[in-house]
């Protein structure tokens, strides 16, 4: 259970990485670049804690794809980005896959 919490924290900071890197404009803006590196370091550390338990392929895939879902959902909530059927089906695939991995004993 604790490894899922580590993975969740890693996901939150990976979303921060995506947001900061997007604002860093090719890493020409100092503070956004620093924010990218700091959140990347925190995300990596918590991912490493989670990977003590998860297989690397499984843990990494869940981490990166749930972060991807978070980015799309936050974009829709805070930045008025459209949530279309394609995005929703991608979200459904990721969630279905995570549940499948959990039920099949891989995670």
């Amino acid at each position: 259970m604790i490894s899922w919490i580590y993975l969740g924290i890693a996901v939150l900071f990976e979303i921060t990485v995506a947001f900061s890197a997007g604002n860093a404009q090719g890493f020409t803006r100092l503070w956004w670049t620093i924010a990218t590196l700091v959140s990347g370091a925190i995300a990596t550390f918590f991912l490493s804690l989670a990977l003590l338990d998860f297989d690397v392929g499984v843990g990494y895939a869940i981490w990166t794809s749930v972060a991807g879902v978070g980015i799309v959902v936050l974009g829709a909530v805070f930045f008025q980005e459209r949530l279309n059927l394609r995005k929703l089906s991608g979200i459904a695939l990721v969630i279905g896959g995570v549940i499948g991995l959990r039920l099949s004993g891989a995670a």
């Binding site: 499984v58 991807g68 799309v72 979200i91 695939l93 990721v94 896959g97 499948g100």
Partner: peptide
């Protein structure tokens, strides 16, 4: 790391990966 998956587990892993690829492609619209 000698971490092998069963066929079922590999299937669900493929579903997740397809999902994230699909999601990223949808974001380029």
């Amino acid at each position: 790391f000698d971490q092998s998956l069963t066929l079922t587990q590999a299937f669900w892993l493929a579903v997740i990966i397809a999902g994230v690829i699909w999601l990223k492609l949808a974001s380029s619209e």
